[in-house]
Design a protein around this nucleic acid. Sequence first.
DNA 1: ATGGTTGCTTAGCAA
Length: 259
Amino acid sequence: MRTTVMTWNVNSVRARLDRLLALLQRHQPDVLCLQELKVADADFPFGPVGELGYRAVVYGQKTYNGVAILSKEEAREVEVGLDDGVEDPQARLISARFPGLRVVSVYVPNGATVGSEKWAYKLEWLARLRSWLDRRRVPGEPLAVCGDFNVAPEERDVHDPRAWEETVLFHPQARAALADVLAFGLVDTYRLHHPEGGRYSWWDYRMLAFPKDDGLRIDHVFATPPLAARCTGAEIDRAERKGKLPSDHAPVIATFDLP
DNA sequence: ATGGTTGCTTAGCAA
């Protein structure tokens, strides 16, 4: 059974509603993970999304953060947050089970500037995500961990590695923290099908970054080995970044042939 | 070049 899993940082689901609905109609993904909703649960556009045949489970937050999973099939066994006893009001993780696989939508903290309090929170959050995986999941199950990780894995995923490694998106410590998450047993599905570099999922709104293609690949669909073995393709919908008032992120799609 | 743009909320923060 062909199953498509997509992830997109919408940068406000209300500001991007028309684009979200067009995206669902264009790709008709089985599962769509969203990040940066910037709305409380009650303000999520359940109605318009429902008219297109999609259900949604939402872990919202007013103004900042907020994650969701949209799907054609009903989401089961929904979990939200890292549930590790840490006092943390930021809505950054939601997980649900679907036929054939479990899906996680994550919004990893940006980290602002290297050395800041937000930077420390980013590195801690990635360590807490690894701990959550160790406690709640096993690498032998079909699992997709999708979202805006705010980290590019390798030099080929960055337009100008020497410049960007000074920043929170490609700093060696951020890359090491991401590598530790992947060491749980996760495969980069996009890389499986795209050994070439120069493919990005995020470009800053400023400095003409998109026209100059000064971007980074920081949005990912990671899969455990049994699921990655069934990944038949992966793409970035770069066209979604074009036109009037786009998100600063492009959607990433992975296709699986499930038993 | 500490710039530039967008969104939420209305002056300033976050990305």
